[in-house]
Simulated scan of single mutants.
Amino acid sequence: MDMIREGHVYDIRKFFVFPKKYVFRPVDGKVMIKFTRYTSVVERNGLDALFPFCTYELTPFGQLPKPSDMPERFSDVLGVITGVSDAVQYHSASRSEPSTKRIIHIKDLSGNQLSVILWGETAAGFDGDGIMELGKTEPIIAIFVGTLVKSYDGRRGVSGSAACRWYINENLPDIVNFRRGLRGQVPVIEHIHLPGQTTAEIQAQVNLETKTLEELVTIDIFEFRDARFYCTATLAKLSPGQRWWFSSCTTCHKTALLSGPGYKCSDPECLGTDALPRYKICFVVTDGETEAEFVFFDRVGRELLGLPLITLLRHGHAPGATLAQVLEAARGDDSVPKEITSWLLLYLKLFGFVHYVIVFSTPPSIIKPPPVGALPTVIESNVRRNSFPPPVTLV
């Protein structure tokens, strides 16, 4: 890999020729070459114009293959960019190390949308800010090559990592023809918000003041209303007697109460009359000295569970039930879905790290540690050994 660079021309000698791979083929050729320790590589300058700038084989959105763990080949797609997220770092329950992720939405000329999910260094290397700025004045047409078809939120999308490349507004025939098909339209590029931490947020944590739980729960919230602090604690259990969701005002996101056929926001200064269900998962955490209650609201709740809240609310209901019917039934049900309790038990069993950025509008409430016998069995055994699972970092 140190001997060759993409986009350069070389004389390559003394290599083996093999039949094509049966899976993960980047191009649909019949044969492939394999380097050996005897292979020689000599760069040839001035010949770039004799070779194609890039190679690809576009697949229309509607003809993308089904997701597969062992696909025959990578897929190449073309579309105009209509949405870009920041590159965010988040922790998955299936990985011990954090992952970097970025989502890009593209559309074809028929208006069909496709999600392109970039990972790792590929996600970090995509110039999202530059694309957002350039998209204010002209359409951003991109070809993504070397992607794998995946399923996201029940829809087909493509995933790109080390093998993925992109060509944006290049003078390629397919991009030129696509631009003509837009007939002068400049689609607005949406800023997609993803759960997780951006690079700027991660860097900002470095200089945060560290607080213990006891210091946090006694802080004057009127004096430090917009302050952010760094605190390390361990998830202990779900808060008893607390609901895991609430009706959130669509205007200001505060709690909304039923009022006749609609809703009334709990904030007297807000005129919102509509609401949507959002996560509100209450946890007890400990730092070994003090316990406190923290609330994980909608974005963090979705990141924890990987499920939209409405999916959990609909469990046990007829498929044709309306949202109003589901919410009416859920208001009378104080049970916590097994997906939430199972996640907590899995975390404690695996002793995995989870990191979140939390913004507090009020301080967490202090709680007296319960007797050992009152704790769940998995917690009780840890307390008796005087050892806790790895801490959750709360900011």
Rank of each mutant, 00 (worst) to 15 (best):
R179V: 01
Y152M: 07
S151T: 06
E380G: 03
T341Y: 00
F15D: 05
P173K: 01
I12V: 14
P390S: 14
T199C: 03
L345T: 14
A292I: 10
G320I: 13
R37L: 12
T362G: 06
R384V: 07
F74M: 05
E138L: 03
D2K: 12
M70Q: 10
N45M: 14
S247T: 10
G62Q: 14
G306L: 04
D2T: 11
V336M: 07
V284C: 09
E303M: 11
M3C: 06
I192Y: 01
S161E: 12
A233W: 09
P371N: 02
T147F: 03
L216M: 09
L323K: 13
A163E: 15
M1I: 06
M70D: 10
V188A: 10
F178E: 02
Q113H: 00
K280M: 15
L47P: 00
Y10T: 01
P277I: 06
D48L: 14
P371Y: 05
G29T: 11
L114I: 08
T377S: 13
V378G: 04
A204C: 04
T36Q: 15
I140C: 09
S151L: 15
A162R: 15
P60E: 11
D76M: 13
W166S: 14
Y356K: 06
G260W: 02
P363T: 09
C164G: 03
A233I: 04
I141L: 00
G262A: 10
I281A: 05
L271C: 11
T147G: 03
A329N: 08
L114T: 02
G272Y: 03
N45C: 09
P370M: 10
P370D: 08
K338E: 11
D11P: 00
C252G: 01
E133A: 10
H315K: 15
K14Q: 13
F61E: 03
L344V: 01
V176Q: 08
T36M: 14
E215N: 03
R225W: 09
D153N: 13
T36S: 15
V395H: 09
L194S: 00
R44L: 12
N382T: 11
L271V: 09
I358V: 13
F229E: 05
A87T: 08
